[in-house]
Design a protein around this nucleic acid. Sequence first.
DNA 1: TGGGGGGCTCGAATCGATTCGACCGTACAA
DNA 2: TTGTACGGTCGAATCGATTCGAGCCCCCCA
Lengths: 358, 358
Amino acid sequence: MSPEPAATTGAVPRVTLADVAAHAGVSASTASLAFSGSGPVSDATKERVLAAADELGYAGPDPRARSLRRGRSGIVGVVLEERVRAAFLDPVKIQTLDGLAEGIASLGAGLLLFTDSGDPAAPVSLDTAPVDAVVLIGCSPKFFRQVEALQRRGIPMVAIEGAPGGDIPEITIDNREATRLGAEHLRSLGHEDVATVTLPFEASRARGPLTPEIESAATVDTAVERLRGARDVYPGIRAQVAAASSIEEGLEAGRALLADAATRPTAVIAQSDLLAAGVIGAAEELGLEVPRDLSVVGFDGIRVDGLQHDLTTLVQPSVAKGRAAGEAVVRMLSGQAAAGTDFTSELHVGETTAPPRA
Amino acid sequence: MSPEPAATTGAVPRVTLADVAAHAGVSASTASLAFSGSGPVSDATKERVLAAADELGYAGPDPRARSLRRGRSGIVGVVLEERVRAAFLDPVKIQTLDGLAEGIASLGAGLLLFTDSGDPAAPVSLDTAPVDAVVLIGCSPKFFRQVEALQRRGIPMVAIEGAPGGDIPEITIDNREATRLGAEHLRSLGHEDVATVTLPFEASRARGPLTPEIESAATVDTAVERLRGARDVYPGIRAQVAAASSIEEGLEAGRALLADAATRPTAVIAQSDLLAAGVIGAAEELGLEVPRDLSVVGFDGIRVDGLQHDLTTLVQPSVAKGRAAGEAVVRMLSGQAAAGTDFTSELHVGETTAPPRA
DNA sequence: TGGGGGGCTCGAATCGATTCGACCGTACAA
DNA sequence: TTGTACGGTCGAATCGATTCGAGCCCCCCA
């Protein structure tokens, strides 16, 4: 389009605001005012500056310089402690992220993803990134070092489901109480022999029956709390640990629990809807009908893509959690204090639970 | 831990490198050297500086200032033209993102997510963010204005599947040829009556039979190219447009195509594996057996969570695409030119295709 | 006609760190 | 002993924009 000789990539002589100002015959300060819009600049001047910018091919103020001066970068960091691939397989996390994006919308900030593992030798980490605030989603205490550094720098932080340590507002849900609700629902239907499929208890993500060792080495509160809730009603409940929250893992766990007709439970409490969908799949493989032969309770209240059943589940406000975190961030950035929030989940009784077969 | 009187959030008097230097009794330049590590600084001095930093609670160089001076922010922007929620429902995009993260690993950069829609009034947009490079994933030409601004600023860009305009290296796959391969596979099996389920043709995402109007208004190359490939073999192929790439949508489309036994095709080419899974589901609802009564070909080669079949599909290198984009970015940032890449997909013959029923 | 009050514009300081070239002293080689 | 080379340190310039306070000019009103 432009008649310029298409500069080679790399050695572009950058145009600065000062150049534009000179070209327009005004001072740099005036030019700056013209760009930021609101300042007291006459329309004529503003136009002249804009025209000069256009002529010189100026693309607007350099974000780096602007952020240094303003002290704000317009970026909110999100820490996920998993690789991208793993993190985004979980619909709840995605919804939470979506809510977060909504919550910080008023900031007009972007979300900077961190999926590193807290490795202090990582090339870029939380503490070398120009973030205005940080939201930790499901993070373990191993981030403590970085969290501390950010606190020293006065960068607001909020945690969603996970205790990274430090004095950080936490957005949580009633994992234990909610699961208890689900368990009570099963008991009220008459179930006595109930099993549970749990989320991973720690980052290594082993799969198999729950052992005391696994339980005592737990770093993921969510799994622990939901298990507690189940135990509140069924103290000796049999538990099978999944390696992740997925249908696939639910299938595995379901097969393990249901294979033996003699020890087969009449109901399963899955710690996530994906796991529940897998358990249902496993039941169907074995020719069992849900809920006639097996009741299944999930957790999350997401719509599992492709699942035909209306799942009985504990609907948690996953989007709201993200939004609350976002709003807390906004509040903290405006200098106010922010407290955490504890959300409650609701039992949705669908068509996957029924009284046990007589 | 520290005996300081826990400053209130908000009004933290920030410690700067200059303060640290003064406290350590060295100049700011030396202190800087001590932090960046590699400079010629005696061990004694370095230690002294670090100790001073520790005493003062200095959390390391301010990323904003550093990025201004260095001209690099350590951030790579990713544009998705959808909301977070929608973008991450697509496993291919996630894998691509994962590959991208891998590809830029050597930069040690974070990924800054943009999901805005190219709205020029959006508060934060691509051109006000401190990014070193930008990767556009599946973006339409409506980003042109911003793309232009970034080019003026000399910020390297790479596009994956999508033509945002401008002179940008593109990472693509052989959508047309690959689909043709799948179609030829069906023809070689003897199929004559084949239908296809397509991805959306534009952002509005209407659902239903493909009409010439929809086709001529298309902005999504992927859908168009894959349709062409199918037509290369079956010129008059009946097409049903899905509103998104999901099992749910595949179910809908499958029902529409298969409902009427009289017009029922013997095979379906789905433009994604999720759609294929849905079509299979729809077939099973109708009591059809795959592949005996219906052959189904997918596209992507992802593992559909929960799908029991070994899907016949066109396996595309989704992770490699991301990685290639990442590597191109790295190359461009080091001043070299980078060209696009056209990847090829491979036909994986699974258990969802067979000769049509005699 | 003089004084007051806006509306615009400008100069200069500032954000915080990095980096280049200069400088200094010491140790080693000639 | 003188020259040289080098490791270590420092000053000052620089990155590019924002912002505060001062100053200027013009208009309006008394």
